[in-house]
């Protein structure tokens, strides 16, 4: 069965990535989710791809607030693949 992309259920681990070609260092994400996004040096964004501690709502706000829409959140409901033999 193929699931359509959509919002990830809150029970799945939060994952995110920022397209740093697109990022223009507006810093809205840093205000929205300061424990996940931060500037290292003046303009260089750093972030946690797999934040813990119930910050989903903050990260969703950060993704929505990004003026250049550079933040992608996970949408899969399948478990992450591992190296223990075949995985479906």
């Amino acid at each position: 069965m193929i699931t359509k992309p959509g919002p990830q259920p809150p029970s799945h681990p939060l994952r995110l990535v920022v397209d740093l070609n697109r990022c223009q260092s507006y810093g809205q994400c840093v205000y929205a989710a300061p424990t996940v996004f931060r500037f290292h040096a003046e303009e260089s964004l750093e972030y946690d791809y797999a934040p813990e501690g119930g910050v989903r709502r903050e990260v969703e706000r950060a993704a929505a607030a990004c003026p250049v829409q550079a933040i992608t959140l996970g949408g899969a409901t399948e478990p992450a693949p591992g190296a223990h033999g075949d995985h479906r």
């Binding site: 699931t3 359509k4 995110l16 946690d48 791809y49 409901t77 693949p81 995985h87």
Partner: peptide, 18 residues
């Protein structure tokens, strides 16, 4: 452990890692 890429949708794949 904190650099895993988000999987943006389900892909119903067989994974052979390693």
């Amino acid at each position: 452990d904190h650099i895993e890429l988000p999987r943006v949708r389900d892909i119903d794949a067989r994974w052979l890692l390693g």
